[in-house]
Design a protein around this nucleic acid. Structure first.
Length: 275
DNA sequence: TCGTATGATTGAGA
DNA sequence: TCTCAATCATACGA
C-alpha cells in the first residue's frame, strides 16, 4: 500500500489538522504536491536540491510535516520495551558501581577516605597495581563521558538539521537519543565489567599468594592443644566450641576444623607408632 | 641443607 | 556434611 493509499484509508479518523490539509490538497493551489513527493525518488540529485528548496518554500510544507509527524506517532515506537531495557541496564550499572565501590576503584564521595574491610589486602605491589587499574578506569571513563556527550550533541545537531527536510517528532528525537544512550551505556557496562574483572584477577592472585602456609602463633597452638588434650576421650568440639576457639585464636572455623582433623590423625598415628 | 612439623587440600566413605 | 587418610607445600629448627 502506498503512502497516499494509507493516508486515504485512514481518512475516516482524520484529525482537524489532517482535514485542513486534505481540504487544501483537494481544493487549492497544490494539487500535485503529493504526486511530486511520491515521484521525487526518481529524480536526479541535481534536480533534487531545487525541488527541496521549492518544497521548503511551499506554504503547505509545515502542515504536511505536522501530519506526517502525527502519523509516525500513531504508528508509534515501542517506548515500553525501551524503558524495560533501560531499567535492566541501570540495574547492571548499579551492580557494577557497587562492586567498584567495594574494590575502592571509585569513592562514594569525592575526597572520601576508603575504610578498610576484612578482605583488604595490604601489599605494596597489590596497591600499586590497584592504583594503575583505578587510574586507567578513571581516564577511560572521562574519555568516554566526553566522547559520548560530543556524540549526542552531534546527533542532536544532525536531527535538528534533518528536521528541516523531513518530519521528525520530538518523541522520535528523544527515541533516537535514548537509542544512542543505550548503545553508549553498553560500552560503559563493558568498561566497568572489564575493570571489575581486572580487580578480581588481581585479588585472586594476591589471595592465592597469602594461602602460603603460616604456622599458628604460640598462643593459638596453646589454646588448641589445651582443648585437645583436655578432651582426649572425645576430641570433637561442637560447632559452638569451634566458633569460640576460632574467636579466641583469631583464626577461621575452617582452620580450627583443619587443625583438629590433622591433630586427631597425627596423634593417633603417633600412638600406634609408639605401641 | 635436610628432616620434621604443620596448615591446607582432596577424595572416599559414612 | 563431617571425618579420616593421604598428600602437598611450606615453615622451622638443628
Amino acid at each position: 500500500m502506498s503512502t497516499e493509499d494509507q493516508l486515504s484509508s485512514s481518512y475516516h479518523i482524520l484529525t482537524p489538522l489532517e482535514n485542513a490539509f486534505y481540504t487544501n490538497i483537494n481544493n487549492q493551489e497544490q494539487p500535485q504536491m503529493m504526486n511530486r513527493i511520491m515521484s521525487i525518488i526518481n529524480d536526479r540529485l541535481d534536480d533534487a536540491q531545487q525541488y527541496k528548496d521549492a518544497f521548503n518554500r511551499n506554504p503547505m510544507q509545515p502542515i504536511l510535516f505536522d501530519i506526517l509527524r502525527e502519523i509516525k506517532q500513531k504508528n508509534g515506537l515501542n517506548m515500553r520495551q525501551i524503558s524495560n531495557e533501560d531499567d535492566s541496564y541501570k540495574q547492571e550499572l548499579a551492580r557494577l558501581d557497587t562492586m567498584l565501590l567495594a574494590e575502592r576503584i571509585v569513592d562514594r564521595y569525592p575526597n572520601e577516605v576508603s575504610t578498610n574491610n576484612s578482605m583488604e589486602i595490604e601489599h605494596p605491589e597489590y596497591e600499586e597495581k590497584l592504583n594503575r587499574i583505578r587510574h586507567f578506569y578513571h581516564t577511560e571513563l572521562a574519555r568516554f563521558d566526553k566522547n559520548s556527550n560530543d556524540f549526542c550533541t552531534h546527533v542532536l545537531t544532525l536531527l535538528h538539521e534533518q528536521s528541516q527536510i523531513r518530519p521528525i517528532t520530538p518523541e522520535e528525537i528523544s527515541h533516537m537519543i535514548s537509542m544512542v544512550r543505550k548503545k553508549l551505556c553498553l560500552i560503559q557496562i563493558q568498561l566497568k565489567q572489564n575493570t571489575c574483572e581486572a580487580v578480581m584477577n588481581l585479588r585472586t592472585r594476591f589471595l592465592d599468594a597469602r594461602r602460603k602456609r603460616r604456622n599458628f602463633d604460640k598462643t593459638t597452638q596453646k589454646i588448641l592443644n589445651e582443648y585437645f588434650y583436655s578432651h582426649l576421650s572425645n576430641p570433637y568440639p561442637s560447632e559452638q566450641v569451634k566458633e569460640e576457639l576460632a574467636r579466641k585464636c583469631g583464626v577461621t572455623i575452617s582452620q580450627v576444623n583443619n587443625w583438629f582433623g590433622n591433630k586427631r590423625g597425627r596423634y593417633k598415628k603417633n600412638m600406634l607408632k609408639n605401641e
